[in-house]
Write a protein that binds this DNA or RNA. Structure first.
Length: 114
DNA sequence: TCCATGACATCCA
DNA sequence: CTGGATGCCATGG
């Protein structure tokens, strides 16, 4: 297997791990931070392929609309919402309220990797 | 190698 | 707001 391509997944994991408590980010933001804004789909794939759910808070990663599109991939349909609410994030109708307020942009917080 | 799918994003009707 | 279509990259049959 080519390690170069596999690095992309690890990159996603690292960024997600750096997401602070009570904050959320989007697939596109992570992809953009990695310099592949168009590869947002691959970011989601990395979440699905993630082995360490304990270290990788995938529940803090949602789509650009703040919608919990990936909640179906968790154990319970409400598990993802429960985890977010547990962090003080209000979720209504599978959508994060004040998403912009809880939004955590790696490019803005961590700064550009270059 | 080609085709289909996916936890996305963007555009257009 | 909703739905369809397109683009992107990676994985699997």
């Amino acid at each position: 297997m080519d390690n170069d391509k596999a690095h992309f997944f690890d990159r996603v994991y690292e960024v997600v791990k750096q997401v602070p408590f009570g904050r959320v980010t989007s697939y596109g933001a992570i992809a953009n931070y990695l310099g592949a804004a168009k590869s947002a789909r691959v970011v989601g794939w990395a979440m699905n392929n993630v082995s360490d759910r304990e270290t990788v808070p995938a529940h803090r990663v949602v789509n650009r609309n703040g919608l919990l599109t990936g909640k179906h991939h968790f154990e319970g349909t409400l598990l993802m919402q429960q985890l977010l609410e547990n962090e003080g994030i209000m979720v209504k109708n599978d959508q994060i309220l004040n998403f912009k307020k809880h939004f955590w942009d790696p490019l803005k917080e961590l700064g550009e990797p270059f």
